[in-house]
């Protein structure tokens, strides 16, 4: 009986240790971009890393945070689910985001820059996800100076909010991770 209790305790301790390790991996940046790839989590936590992430996720929910899975292809992403194929999950990036939107200001960005990003994202989403850079620049030039537009777009690309391929802009990985696109469109249309 005593032995069984010890084993349970050991199991609990090991599980707690793994959850702590997962939290540290996800909270602290290890690469240029935040987040950890599925295969890195597997390597650090073992084959049942999705179970560990699920436990961590339920703990984070209490603090208004959640673990989000971002796929490179932009498909099948969102909250952590175990039903996805193993290989795909290992390629995906796991990050922690705020579950609810911010109530107070939490960014040092100028209001003009945020407005530009907001308009750019909404414009690209409405055009099925791809727009030539020149079209965006001309569209924004209605309200902002060209010089500011060029530097802002370059910055959004660097930050991962936008992607650029052969002078065509598309939605970047960070927008997919951080922005509720449906909500953004609804808010703009109802404003």
């Amino acid at each position: 009986m005593e032995e069984e209790t010890e084993t349970e305790e050991e199991l609990r301790t090991r599980a707690e240790r793994k959850v702590k390790k997962a939290a540290q991996l996800l909270f602290f940046r290890r690469h240029r971009n935040p987040g950890v790839k599925g295969w890195e989590l597997k390597k650090a936590l073992g084959d049942n890393y999705m179970d560990v992430i699920a436990v961590l996720n339920s703990a984070l929910h209490r603090f208004g945070m959640e673990v989000k899975r971002i796929s490179k292809e932009g498909e099948g992403e969102g909250e952590v689910e175990k039903s996805e194929g193993k290989e795909k999950t290992e390629r995906d990036r796991f990050i922690i985001v705020l579950k609810n939107h911010l109530i107070e200001k939490a960014s040092g960005a100028r209001i003009d820059d945020v407005a530009m990003l907001s308009a750019t994202l909404a414009y690209i989403i409405s055009k099925q996800g791809k727009v030539p850079r020149k079209t965006i620049e001309d569209f924004l030039a209605d309200k902002f100076s060209k010089h500011r537009i060029y530097s802002a777009l370059d910055r959004y690309i660097r930050q991962g909010y936008l992607g650029e391929d052969d002078k065509v802009l598309y939605i970047g990985w960070r927008t997919r991770a951080e922005v509720d696109r449906k909500s953004l469109l609804d808010l703009i249309l109802s404003a």
Binding site: K68, V97, L98, K99, N100, H101, L102, K105, A106, S107, V114, A115, L117, S118, L121, A122, E178, V179, D180, R181, S183, L184, L187, I188, A191
Partner: peptide
């Protein structure tokens, strides 16, 4: 609108 749909 962006802030309200933003989950940093």
């Amino acid at each position: 609108a962006l802030f309200k749909s933003w989950h940093p």
